[in-house]
């Protein structure tokens, strides 16, 4: 045993880095510029990741895996999130299209069933440490279940990995064609990790102003994020990882659209090739996007885009209340 290995084994670990944040830091470091604090466009993105696996004050969570490799083989949407169409409602501007989509979402019934279920394809690009480094794209299916009492379960499918570009494939070969994350079980996505933060879940207001006020009251006191950064992070958590009603979800869109720095783009694609309206913010280098189905108002994707490339994404396949039940947790 290595000296002091027990310390390494026992003490809590940290979740994987947010790739967008790494990119931003890398650009700043290589530019030799002094870094402004909290420049991430997905502030505390790991908060949402942790929420998926049950946010803990301290500790570790075992995430049961979905049986077999279901990545990319899940059944098509049957509940709230329909496959997006490229037809957009009649609207004179993207902002108006978003407002219409929010109205349509708010008009949806809250849904019935004992469990709320969110199924998404998570895509994440990561560097390897090879010389020269190459980028690997990891992809997995993630399902979150929440019951009417707020109990939460989550499942993850096996990770599949691929090399996105010819340059990456060349660098990978030059590095000796090493096994990729999805080729073995020791893959960091979905591993148990430590998460010291939590966000209190409350009954969410269904009006944008009230929602914003509530979220700002819940903002952790020891953080120095700007209000907008906190609200974007919390919004992401609400949309992906909470059983918020359609009206509350619509309020999230309206709240974000009214924040300084928010843009509405009329047409954007997600990693599944679907088209929607994008509600986004960020800087010239990195943008965070919510892709929204204009015909229903449903959330299609939450993604981070760098220079036109999607680096990190949750593409929602299904979202809403259901009569299905989660599988029993196993060791």
């Amino acid at each position: 045993m290595r000296e002091f290995q027990l310390v390494d084994d026992v003490m809590p670990d940290v979740p994987p880095a947010d790739h967008a944040r790494v990119l931003a830091v890398r650009a700043e470091v290589l530019g030799g510029t002094r870094r402004r604090r909290r420049t991430s466009v997905w502030p505390r993105v790991t908060l949402a990741a942790a929420a998926v696996t049950g946010v803990l004050a301290a500790g570790a969570v075992v995430v049961p895996r979905l049986g077999g490799d279901r990545t990319g083989t899940v059944s098509p949407s049957t509940t709230a999130t329909a496959v997006a169409t490229t037809s957009s409602p009649t609207a004179s501007s993207p902002e108006e299209a978003l407002a219409t989509a929010a109205d349509r979402l708010a008009a949806q019934p809250p849904g019935t069933g004992a469990w709320w279920r969110r199924e998404a394809i998570r895509t994440r690009r990561a560097w390897t440490k090879a010389d020269p480094p190459f980028t690997v794209e990891h992809r997995l299916t993630e399902v979150v279940w929440i019951d009417r009492q707020g109990r939460r379960r989550s499942e993850q499918g096996r990770v599949s990995s691929s090399l996105p570009t010819a340059a990456d494939r060349r660098a990978w070969k030059k590095a000796g064609s090493p096994k990729l994350c999805g080729d073995h079980d020791d893959c960091q996505i979905g591993k148990v990790f430590f998460m010291p933060m939590r966000l209190k879940q409350a009954t969410l207001p269904e009006e944008a102003g009230a929602l914003k006020a509530l979220l700002l009251r819940q903002r952790p006191k020891d953080r120095v994020d700007k209000d907008e950064e906190w609200l974007w992070a919390a919004a992401r958590w609400i949309l992906l990882d909470s059983a918020a009603t359609p009206r509350a979800r619509a309020a999230v869109y309206r709240m974000l659209a009214g924040l300084p720095g928010a843009d509405v783009v009329g047409r954007a694609h997600d990693t599944e090739g679907r088209t929607g309206i994008a509600l986004e913010h960020g800087n010239a280098f990195i943008r965070q996007q919510l892709v929204i189905d204009p015909t229903s108002g449903d959330l299609l994707a939450v993604q981070t885009v760098v220079s036109g490339d999607v680096l990190d994404a949750y593409a929602v396949r299904r979202l809403g209340w259901t009569d299905e039940r989660p599988p029993e947790a196993t060791d």
Binding site: D9, M11, P12, G54, V61, V63, R152, S154, A329
Partner: peptide
């Protein structure tokens, strides 16, 4: 708080 994930103390 009702999250019924299995929690493991290392």
């Amino acid at each position: 708080d009702g999250h019924d994930q299995r929690i493991v103390e290392r």
